[in-house]
Design a protein around this nucleic acid. Structure first.
Ligand code: FES
Ligand code: FES
Lengths: 155, 155
DNA sequence: GAGTATCCTGACAAAGCTTGTCGACTTCTT
DNA sequence: AAGAAGTCGACAAGCTTTGTCAGGATACTC
């Protein structure tokens, strides 16, 4: 029932990119806006690049930009990249569920599957275009990102 | 997005007790029927006793039985006993959510809350009476519980 | 009341996972 | 050539989960 920190970071990053018009954002800039440690983003962004969600450009004036229209990126897509299966228990996964000793006629599994499906349905039904549209105001509180991402090198 | 093993065990135990008519079941017997290591059940059952879900009797002919009617025990109740908050992320818990740097106007949180609410709604809407009623056949595959709970004492 | 069956409690070690960090490298621009 | 990015893999610390155990307490039986 819990999402990993990297999943959190990734979704925030994509939302940030969705709010930005077209130009690429430097990793450092994304880190600042999302209040994510830069060193972790350095690990998260390439994963999304490999998956074809974002595109990167090197050298000065480089950075990351979306590789698709925000309306084509569902929250489910991102979550699945970093999270394992979305089922709450191993006997209720969609792809080769682990056999559980009580599988034969176990009615609990039905409920776990319902939870799984509800989750998938919600996450799959939301795109980053939706999220960006809903985000009106200044959705980042400057006061709270004072403690900078990579604070200082072992000080 | 994942439920702990102890939660799994606990729900299986309660379902087992719900299927049993009235008489108390020995911990050892529950362990066998649910294919749960007895030593772990020894830790899980008392938790549910303290919570008032089950009742125990000592001595020979002792064991555990439900302390309420199965129709009064929701799956949510049991899950909450062993699982932390049901929200998928710390900024979306119902009780004192942890402030997240992007809280101001973050539209992601809305979705996390929807997931949370959907989960709660599903788990809260199912009682063990429902689960027991739906369970018709021999819902335990004997072949699979061959590897006994507490195999043998350091042999 | 001795003996036995059962539950109770707390402490614990091993294993696994998550988190954040680092250093050395590649690619692009000027 | 120099500098500004992104890329990759390895890793240590910390946390959580999992299962185990030993000794104790209570209730029944004879
Ligand atoms: S099948 Fe795994 S808990 Fe029922
Ligand atoms: S408020 Fe926590 S992710 Fe948006």
């Amino acid at each position: 029932m819990w999402v990993s920190r990297r999943t959190d970071y990734a979704t925030r990053a994509i939302l940030t990119l969705s709010l930005e018009g077209g130009g690429p954002l430097k990793l450092e800039e994304i880190a600042r806006r999302t209040a994510v440690p830069q060193s972790v983003l350095e690990q998260v962004m390439p994963t999304m690049r490999t998956a074809g969600v974002v595109r990167s450009e090197r050298g000065p004036a480089g950075g990351y930009r979306l590789n698709k229209d925000p309306s084509e990126i569902t929250l489910e897509r991102i979550v699945r990249l970093f999270q394992g299966p979305l089922a709450p228990i191993s006997c209720a996964t969609r792809h080769n569920p682990e056999p559980c000793p009580m599988m034969v006629g176990c009615t609990l599994r039905d409920v776990w599957e319902e939870v799984r499906d509800a989750t998938i349905s919600l996450l799959g039904g939301v795109t980053f275009a939706d999220l960006a549209k809903r985000a009106g105001g200044p959705w980042l509180d400057p006061a709270l990102i004072a403690p900078v991402p990579n604070p200082s090198p072992t000080t």
